[in-house]
Write a protein that binds this DNA or RNA. Structure first.
Length: 271
DNA sequence: AATCGCGCCTGACGGC
DNA sequence: TGCCGTCAGGCGCGAT
């Protein structure tokens, strides 16, 4: 799915078109996403003004006069701004039209995403209330990760992909950040020195920042809200290249599975 | 409490 | 050509 940079890219792409606009029409073609889209959604949204859009973790939060709409892009979701309804591509499950005539289109082939109405108090919703720090929060430091990791035997890769620890990091960026930090993805989180966590935090922030600047990563499904792919794909160092030589030391990159997610790493650079 | 695997879906790809 | 297994950017849930 879209990880933080893809969600952020989406947010920046759609926000300028939609701020302060009122919803005039809602079309739902498929209600079965990760959870069923609430049947009352069209009534909830009708004639409501969109005040702001925020990102929290990999969620987009649309603040309307009367409450918050939550959208998650799951594994294969994307949002587009389109000026006409036609053509309607396969998997265009929801279209929301605003007063300026533009449509916000939700496309999601695998339907692991979500569209939920959260009402007035979104941050107490179960999906949001246990989230960890945003990676660009000043409180997200090596010491923070080190403290959280104390005594934990979980591998570092699933540890940094745990949204209760730090938000927005998924399989691609976890893989890349660990490579940049020289940390083996299977190393127990509780057995990593404080100093190495400093390095890791810096790597996570730098990689996410660069990826945002380049419009995210497009493997297949993701596209920016204008339909263009993300260009960080060409900056990936090791994700997607198992068996290839390490860009740093030429050793053959290896592939392992950690908590059911494939993980590429360099057996020489990452310890 | 912490950790792990499964399953939700569609589609692309490789091997036979 | 087609069929079948495997894999894919996430994440909540139930089992251990």
């Amino acid at each position: 799915m879209p990880e933080l940079p893809e969600v952020e890219t989406t947010l920046c792409g759609i926000r300028p078109h939609l701020l302060q606009q009122r919803v005039c029409k809602v079309i739902i073609r498929q209600t079965q996403l990760r959870w069923e889209i609430p049947k009352i959604l069209p009534q909830q949204l009708k004639q409501q003004r969109l005040l702001t859009i925020h990102r929290r973790a990999k969620y987009l939060l649309f603040q309307f006069d009367n409450g918050y709409l939550l959208i998650h892009l799951g594994m294969s979701g994307s949002l587009r701004i389109v000026s006409t309804l036609e053509p309607i591509p396969k998997h265009a499950h929801v279209d929301i039209q605003f007063d300026n005539t533009l449509w916000l289109r939700y496309i999601d082939p695998r339907r692991f995403g979500a569209i939920l109405w959260l009402g007035q108090d979104p941050f107490h919703h179960p999906l949001l209330q246990h989230l960890g720090l945003e990676p660009f929060d000043p409180a997200f430091t090596g010491v923070y990760l080190y403290q959280k990791a104390k005594g934990k035997r979980i591998a570092i890769k699933p540890f940094i992909m745990d949204q209760k620890i730090v938000t927005g990091v998924g399989n691609i960026y976890a893989t890349e950040a660990l490579f940049h930090s020289g940390i083996h993805p299977a190393r127990a989180a509780g057995r990593i020195a404080k100093k190495r966590y400093d390095t890791l935090v810096t790597a996570i922030q730098q990689i996410l920042q660069q990826a945002i600047q380049q419009g995210g990563t497009t493997l297949k499904d993701f596209s920016q809200s204008n339909g263009k792919p993300g260009y960080f794909t060409q900056s990936l160092q090791i994700y997607g290249y198992p068996g290839q030589p390490c860009p740093r030391c030429n050793q053959q990159l290896k592939l392992i599975s950690l908590n059911n997610r494939s993980s590429v790493y360099c057996p020489r650079c990452q310890t």
